[in-house]
Write a protein that binds this DNA or RNA. Structure first.
Lengths: 191, 191
DNA sequence: TTCATCTTGTAGTATCCACTCCAGGTAACG
DNA sequence: CGTTACCTGGAGTGGATACTACAAGATGAA
């Protein structure tokens, strides 16, 4: 079962091709031929390194879900602004292909239960992280209130991200920054 | 080209089957066989009534996009709370299959440009409607500010809706209602 | 070098897909 | 009733799909 060096290199080429394709055509649109063509290998090589097509896709998917969350070393110290900024960078940064995959996954959870569980687990962790950051800045509001606000901020960020991908003119960073302002969403100071 | 009564009834059965399937298995998972089996017709009957599979799917898709927006007769009179409540009812109500389709569409806009344009157009209209309701209630805030808040509310509602579909325990109505409170998202009164 | 193990491309296979063809049935109308 | 238009189901088509079998080559530890 030990792998040779060339085999591991081919494996990386295949994963890179899969990653790119997932961002471009979506999780349902990826075919084996597309992957092997882009990676420059035959089907035989693919199946020498992966059991099924799904295995390769899942490997990239896990990576995408993991990539939403910034640098775990900061846990317990980061501010809410840090977390929001990291999310914006994740969506609009260089690896936005991965971000695209992540949003598709969230949506595929609408029809695929296994995916739903996977996405929900990572969502829960993220809510906790946002909640804890909020509590550190405003300990007075209480855990329940902080969690509700964390859910709201994350929901808005997700919605903004979808809008941004669909409408290139949408200023994602600006709208995300507004979420941190004391003014809030619905009502203003001029009440 | 005129259609007989029986033909039109079959057409309805096919559209109903398509609608159900779209909600259950997603836009990529719908096959012709699944549609015709559920509708209880042969492939020949389908193609007597629709040019392609995509035509039937698009007919349901248009319906789903249209269904997000509540009763157009209220335009110009409704409050922000009315609009939010209507969105919540759309997602959690009896026709939540349609709502599921709508969210899938928004996500499919991530990889399908034609879908992206379609979704964006309806999104823009909805933002305007929310903005106008906001301006009616707080004329002082200005159109730009109102539009930004409309975007934020809609983004949060969309994010909440995805969470709700993925996590049945999520209290969508409660979180949606919080969007209307003067407190806002990030900061509280106890600052 | 030796040789077992791993890697590779090709030429398959079975299965599913959207879609077509067509013969026989049915609806509408005079 | 007769005629024409429409409706119907199912067998069949071509093409794409994921995946396999295998022969020939490359790799790497001794």
């Amino acid at each position: 079962m030990g792998r040779y060096r060339v085999g591991l290199e081919t494996r990386e080429r295949i994963l890179t091709a899969t990653r790119e394709l997932l961002g471009e055509v979506g999780i349902e649109g990826v075919t084996l031929k597309a992957i092997t063509d882009r990676a420059g290998v035959g089907a035989g090589s693919f199946y020498n390194l992966f059991e099924t097509k799904e295995q390769a896709v899942l490997e990239v998917v896990r990576e995408a879900i993991g990539a939403v969350d910034p640098d775990p070393s900061g846990v317990g110290r980061e501010s809410l602004a840090d977390l929001v900024e990291a999310f914006v960078r994740f969506i609009t940064g260089e690896a936005s292909g991965i971000a695209r995959i992540y949003l598709q996954l969230a949506a595929s959870g609408l029809t695929d239960e296994r995916m739903a569980r996977r996405v929900l687990r990572s969502h829960r962790r993220r809510v906790e992280r946002f909640r804890d950051a909020l509590l550190r800045e405003q300990p007075g509001i209480g855990a329940g209130e902080a969690e509700a606000r964390a859910e709201a901020i994350l929901a808005a960020l997700t919605g903004f991200a979808i809008t941004w991908f669909i409408d290139p003119r949408f200023d994602f960073a600006l709208h995300a920054a507004r979420l941190l302002q004391p003014v809030g969403v619905a009502s203003g100071g001029s009440e």
